[in-house]
Amino acid sequence: MHPNDVILQTITKCLSFIIVIFSFYVFLAGHHNPGGGFIGALTTACAFILISVAFDIETVRKMIPVDYKYIMATGLLIAGLSGVGSMIFGENFLWQTFDYFDLPLLGNTELATALLFDIGVYLVVIAVVLSIIFTIGEEH
């Protein structure tokens, strides 16, 4: 398909890792700095789109050998259950809380339940973007 894309493919191999790591950073930094689940997911999706352009869609399929619809469902489930979780403690649906913990390696770290919710958002958005683009892209 792309016999002369050596440069592109090589750069992609490096760049995609950087993008993914950056997107993780954006995702985790969301609580205090610009970023969050939505933009993090979009950036991650961009890495996969780059791979699909440089190689092809099949490569991405092999990298994520799960049906995107399951990822969407899992994301929705996590986001929904994180809201239900607060109800177990007698609070309203989607009540969020946070606290500081001493974790090994990381030291004093703030952990918020909002992160669980954000993971749900993250998974949903990645799966939605990839699903839309690949569904349309495969339809030739």
Binding site: P34, G36, M72, A73, L76, G80, L94, Q96, F117, V121
Partner: peptide, 27 residues
């Protein structure tokens, strides 16, 4: 809410309900 990014705190905490259904819309 323990967050310094006000936009994100509003999105996932104060008004997380909206966000939840926005991702439903995306799905």
């Amino acid at each position: 809410a323990g967050g310094k990014n006000m936009v994100n705190v509003i999105l996932v905490d104060f008004r997380g309900f909206d966000t939840f259904f926005e991702i439903v819309v995306l799905v």
